[in-house]
Design a protein around this nucleic acid. Structure first.
Lengths: 248, 248
DNA sequence: GAGTGGTCTAGACCACCCC
DNA sequence: GGGTGGTCTAGACCACTCT
């Protein structure tokens, strides 16, 4: 009974069917066919739509679930992941207290400015040097202590009308805010860590002495299709806290 | 024709078959039935041995492969991962140059001493405070520059006869050496990063000024069964280099 | 009970490697 | 050509959730 796989989307070079399905699902996500937090159609429905077996759809969904783009819930369905849910608010935050607890930070915004992209940021965000950008400064406090000074840079073109008023309304994380206000989901990020000395500005904001060693965390965050959307530099006081990472 | 799965290993609480197979495979690995670098039996053979279908064995192997415990090679077989192979020599090293290249470091050993475990290390390695340990100091140089000062602590009980002479013979990474000399494979590691100031010893070894900000990387490395085996503190000069991490 | 994801099987065929 | 992993299918049954 098993006939050779019906080539649903014959591509030039060989691609497994489940990989093609994965691409189709991703395109539907980009197009906004299913919004963050919503359920996507059942595996059986998708199998019928794409004319493949349930097992093949399953493998495509498995891949997207392992990237935290979709979330499976047994007995209920498969959902589009969202930064809005409490547990995923600070999904990318790796700072934990030395005792191992993962605290939720409290945000205070310092300013929101408009400016032009320098060479480094332009390269990171795939913009032209001098392209208009928005720069946000904020401080994250853990257990009442200011610990992280963030500089966040976004392309103005992608986020029209973004200003201090708008952003201050956002409860919690920036990503949750960008998702609800602009429908843009962050799916992965790259970070580069260094040790630096606190400059005058950082010292003032974190209430420490100039020259104190700080953990500098540079991040580029990506949305669907590996499109870079945010550049960020976090300066973190690692006193009682550290950046946690697992290697496998 | 599909009968209810023959319960190969009926456990008290429910466990999927492929999970039980995964455990059996892991036990064989611990027992040394298949050594690092060797091929394990084919999926068909394993399916016959455990009286399950090929697909179930496949899923168990998939899990182990995703943890980098096994390595699949199409057309050849499935192999036990090893730190000995060139590409995996520095599998856990996340320091890369700012241009993005991953250089291979050159190791020089400073000393190998015997001592007793302090409270912190005893906790990390699940030993009693005061248990005998071996402490290794070394420097890693990138492109001729000393960049990382490592302090490596191992339980003496696990590594009899380990001394400076032995360890200096080891080409490349410590893990590669421990694997060949003691048959002990590191499976995964946890790291905690902080920013600190260079003390006199670090300054001397890295040829920098005292007080220079350094990236402090504390690591606990585990072997099979999540058994902690190594505690390590790396002090890294992040000048032209950074610690790279991907978040998903 | 109906619907969803999760497990397991059996079998066919494909892509890759090596003799 | 024969062996290995990799893909795909079709179908049965289990576990979970909601109603």
């Amino acid at each position: 009974m098993p006939k050779p796989a019906a080539a649903a989307l014959p591509g030039p070079s060989f691609r497994p069917l489940y990989d093609q399905i994965k691409i189709l699902l991703t395109q539907s996500l980009i197009a906004g066919e299913w919004k963050p937090g919503e359920a996507i159609p059942s595996e059986m429905e998708l199998a019928a739509r794409y004319r493949v077996s349930q097992g093949t759809v399953r493998k495509a969904i498995d891949a997207l679930a392992s990237e935290s783009i979709l979330v499976r819930r047994q007995g209920k369905g498969t959902y589009v992941a969202t930064h809005t849910e409490p547990n995923y608010q600070y999904r990318f935050l790796r700072i934990i207290s030395n005792s191992g607890e993962k605290h939720h930070p409290v945000t205070s915004f310092i300013d929101v400015k408009r400016g032009k992209a320098g060479a480094e940021i332009a390269r990171a965000l795939a913009l032209k040097t001098g392209a208009p950008v928005i720069t946000i400064h904020r401080v994250l406090a853990f257990a009442g202590r200011p610990l992280i000074l963030d500089e966040i840079v976004l392309s103005s073109a992608l986020f029209p009308g973004l200003d201090m008023d708008k952003i201050e309304q956002s409860r919690g994380s920036i990503y949750s805010f960008l998702e609800t206000a602009y429908g843009l989901r962050m799916i992965r990020a790259e970070e580069r860590l260094r040790a630096v000395s606190a400059d005058a500005f950082a010292a003032k904001q974190l209430k420490i002495k100039t020259g104190t060693p700080l953990l500098s965390v540079d991040r580029i965050a990506f949305t669907y299709g590996d499109k870079p959307v945010e550049w960020r530099r976090g300066l973190c006081l690692t006193d009682g806290y550290s950046y946690y990472n697992e290697l496998a």
